[in-house]
Design a protein around this nucleic acid. Structure first.
Length: 815
RNA sequence: GCCGGAGUGGCGGAAUUGGCAGACGCGCACGACUCAAACUCGUGUUCCUAACGGAGUGUGGGUUCGACCCCCACCUCCGGCACCA
């Protein structure tokens, strides 16, 4: 009796054998081309999500395919194990963050193993492991030593609920809420550590040689936000320098007032006695604004006159200085020259407060603008007017000429401004990598000697959510002798942003136990860079920009090599709940992969996730289609088992071409689709191939051609459904293991169609279809068309005006 | 508002990039097997029409012998950014 296909009977069995045989162990092998396939590591939140499967199993299938292409493939896995949720769980449930994290990791390791992925577990890296964070600390020290880390007091975004600093990109939405807990964010002045990512702003704009999605490149480009312009020195009446950045220096003569951000340091000196009250009130309101859920629709300009004036350096004009919240302290210099005639925001402000509007740009043939009556700003480049000596400068030269003019008079210069700001990495939290610095009252800030690393996190800790790092409250931990002078000193009690860990985890995988450096250079030389990186697009401006910075900074320091860490990047979409909403525990729409695996088996869940969605797009979970995949696996199973002791029938030879044609067409299709991350059509092609074989089996099962086709079918199933493929490979006597075989070779000759369907069209409409030999000549095809009954009928006696023959496809008779 | 991506049967989705629209599945209908149901297998399944035929890939126009595909204008949905000077 033939065994039934019961996935639960074969999947754990093979997983165990693969593990015992170290089938997925990847080691340096210079005789083979290397391939580093990386998928973003999970945060150990407790349970694997169907979304993890959706992200990881196609990546696994592709890594397996690359291996079958003869490449030496590294496909590692690990855990991004530091971070806030562990600490929140600790506070809520009185568990130690370490216990909570490691319990979750143990559970998720088990779940990950049930996927049957080719992870090399010997290379697992866990960022909360001292073996790992020793080197996170070490990296910090290298950045410090190379002048890429500095300390500054800065108003930072602070989440009062999480009690921690947030990076700018962790603050979301117009109401500025915390990424993790949705609490509105407030500002807080703190002394913090920053990394000089801005040193690399220009380099981060270049994506040369990188195969990254346009979406991510454009998000990063916008994030860096490079703009060309000029900085111009204005002076206040009192003689203080007041520098502005402008992208439109050519409109300088049209500046009729200035606007400062409410937090600008010169506001106090500029404000006159009778404006003081109004200015103070406005500043207070503005500072609270980050606190309040601000309506997106409040676009109405607000502001207050300081009572002070500034001098426009190009025409010595005295212009009023206002403060307004539409000018941001964090961009440029926190002050602007306002040119209401040519900037819509300035225009709205001027009209609201009755300030002058003076056009200084025109274009040939354009009606003269009237500053008193115009109804909106005219934001154009053009020829300069009303601009003193520079009046008449043509559009093409306007910006450059003005910059030259400013430079000659020493009142300004051409400059470039970026939106990107330095990376703030201090977190007032416990569960993170300690910042390995010591504060000494004599020697200042001193790094922990590298020989003393790691600075270990203490286990005995109290969490009182005071807003200060729990490390600060520990009775002994922070007290340390200064490594320079030996006097009493204190450790930095902050920990690092977890993006620091994820910036280099791909290097730790290379040698997770290596203790002479962050990674073994031998491994680095062989495996780096990452050939394919897959993950969610939500990391476009955070993780993916930090990791590029990290790589470039350490390339300059001499630790990494090559221009970029990841050559190819692809983003998968998201699996939503069955209700079309983002899956979340609170909505109760979370799909548990374990249940699906129990019901259908891992292979089926893997194949379904590839089959049912466009990988790039994702979509709502639904189990409607999974039965189709399940049936396919059943059919394949039965067909292969039946074929083993079948004997070819008398008509087997007639089926030979059908079988081998489909076989080779399928090889071509799947190879192309898997390279292009088009996973859904891979499964379709496998189903079609299976169906053709089942159809042919009555006559041909047992024939050499049939067996060869079954052989290739199993090989092509191997990346997608590794367990059933291994079992069936064993059934047909392939030996161990199907996952060590090479991908079947494609023969174009065998894939060729012998016959084609020739489409006959009249005026572009299909009127008939004929089955003809594939190599039919143009002339013969045309003859067949003109002799065709339907075509004659539709020509209705007219002479054809034109006959178009597309070889191998169609004939279109026009007339 | 700006920048990306996408709109195709009842549903998920195909279409060699300008050449048979709807592959592969789901669902549904009918049939076979069964006492019966499920499973399985077979047949059919874009819409309108009794049929000949006609219409059809978000909408309107255009280019072309021929358009889901290219061009112009617009609509809707998803993601990101949002007073960036």
């Amino acid at each position: 009796m033939k065994p039934q296909y019961i996935p639960q009977n074969i999947e754990p069995k093979w997983q165990e054998i693969w593990e015992n045989e170290k089938l997925y162990r990847s080691e340096i092998d210079h005789s083979k081309e290397k391939y580093y396939a990386l998928t973003m590591l999970p945060y150990p939140s407790g349970n694997l999500h169907i979304g993890h499967w959706y992200a990881m199993t196609p990546s696994d299938a592709r890594a397996r395919y690359m291996r079958m292409q003869g490449k030496n493939v590294l496909f590692p896995m690990g855990f991004d194990a530091f971070g806030l949720p562990a600490e929140n769980a600790a506070i809520k449930r009185n568990l130690h963050p370490k216990d909570w994290t490691y319990d979750n990791i143990a559970n998720m390791q088990k779940q990950l193993r049930s996927m049957g992925a080719m992870f090399d577990w010997e290379r697992e890296a866990i960022s909360a492991d001292p073996k790992f964070y020793t080197w996170t600390e070490w990296f910090f020290i290298q950045l410090f030593k190379n002048d890429l880390a500095y300390r500054a007091k800065k108003a930072v975004d602070w989440c009062p609920h999480c009690n921690t600093t947030l990076a700018r990109e962790q603050v979301w939405g117009v109401d500025r809420h915390c990424e993790r807990c949705d609490t509105p964010v407030i500002k807080k002045e703190l002394e913090q550590w920053f990394f000089k990512i801005t040193n690399y702003a220009d380099e981060l704009l270049s994506f040369e040689g990188m195969d990254w999605p346009e979406q991510v490149r454009s998000m990063q480009t916008n994030w860096v936000g490079k703009s060309h312009g000029a900085s111009v020195k204005f002076y206040t009446e009192l003689g203080d320098e007041l520098e502005v950045f402008t992208t439109r220096p050519d409109t300088l003569w049209g500046a009729t007032f200035m606007v400062l951000a409410p937090e600008h340091p010169l506001v106090n000196t500029l404000t006159t006695a009778d404006q003081k009250e109004a200015v103070e009130a406005y500043k207070l309101a503005a500072s609270k604004q980050t606190d309040i859920e601000r309506e997106a629709t409040t676009k109405e300009k607000t502001g207050v006159f300081t009572g002070g004036y500034a001098i426009n350096p190009v025409n010595d004009e005295k212009i009023p200085v206002w403060i307004a919240d539409y000018v941001l302290m964090g961009y440029g210099t926190g002050a602007i020259m306002a040119v209401p005639a040519h900037d819509q925001r300035d225009f709205e402000f001027a009209r609201k407060f009755g300030l002058a509007v003076r056009p200084v740009v025109t274009q040939a043939g354009m009606e003269a603008l009237d500053g008193d009556t115009m109804e909106e700003a005219v934001a154009i480049y053009g020829d300069m007017i009303n601009s003193g000596e520079l009046t008449g400068t043509p559009q093409a030269d306007a910006v450059a000429t003005t910059i030259k003019y400013l430079e000659e008079r020493n009142v300004g210069q051409g400059t470039v401004n970026y939106r990107l700001r330095d990376w703030l990495i201090s977190r007032q939290r416990y569960w993170g990598s300690p910042i390995p610095m010591i504060h000494c009252s004599v020697c200042g800030v001193v790094p922990v000697p590298e020989a003393d690393l790691p600075v270990l996190l203490p286990d005995d800790i109290e969490w009182t959510p005071t807003g200060e790092s729990p490390l600060k409250l520990h009775p002994t931990w922070k007290h340390v002798d200064c490594p320079e002078c030996g006097g009493k000193a204190e450790r930095d009690t902050d920990t690092m942003d977890t993006f620091m860990c994820s910036s280099w985890y791909h290097l730790r995988y290379l040698s997770p136990d290596y203790d002479k450096g962050p990674f073994d250079p031998k491994e680095g030389d062989y495996w780096m860079p990452v050939d394919t990186y897959t993950g969610g697009a939500e990391h476009a401006t955070m993780h993916l920009i930090y990791t590029r910075f990290f790589h470039k900074a350490f390339r300059d320091i001499g630790i990494t090599s090559g221009p970029e860490p990841m050559v190819q990047l692809r983003n998968q979409g998201q699996i939503l709940g069955p209700d079309g909403q983002r899956m979340s525990k609170s909505r109760g729409n979370v799909v548990d992969p374990d249940k699906q695996v129990d019901m259908y088996g891992a292979d089926c869940v893997r194949a379904y996730l590839m089959f049912g969605y466009r990988w790039r797009e994702g979509g709502p979970w639904s189990d409607d289609n999974i039965t189709g995949v399940s049936r396919w696996l059943q059919r394949a199973w039965t067909m292969v088992h039946d074929s083993v002791d079948a004997e070819a029938g008398p008509n087997a030879a007639k089926r030979l071409r059908d079988i081998e044609r489909k076989q080779h067409q399928t090889i071509a299709r799947i190879s192309k689709d898997i390279e292009n991350f088009e996973f859904n059509t891979i499964i379709s092609a496998l189903m079609e191939f299976t169906n053709v074989l089942i159809d042919a089996s009555k006559d041909a099962a047992g024939s050499d051609a049939f067996n060869a086709a079954v052989h290739d079918l199993i090989l092509m199933m191997a990346p997608v459904t590794p367990h059933i493929a291994e079992e069936l490979w064993n059934v047909i006597g392939g030996g161990f293991s199907v996952h060590q075989q090479l991908w079947p070779t494609y023969d174009a000759e065998k894939a060729k169609n012998d016959e084609i369907t020739l489409v006959l069209q009249h005026n572009g409409k299909t009127r008939d279809k004929l089955t003809v030999p594939a190599d039919i000549s143009k002339e013969d095809a045309e003859k067949l068309a003109l002799a065709n009954e339907s075509i004659i009928k539709f020509l209705d006696g007219r002479e054809p005006k034109k006959v178009i023959v597309v070889p191998g496809r169609l004939v279109n008779v026009v007339g």
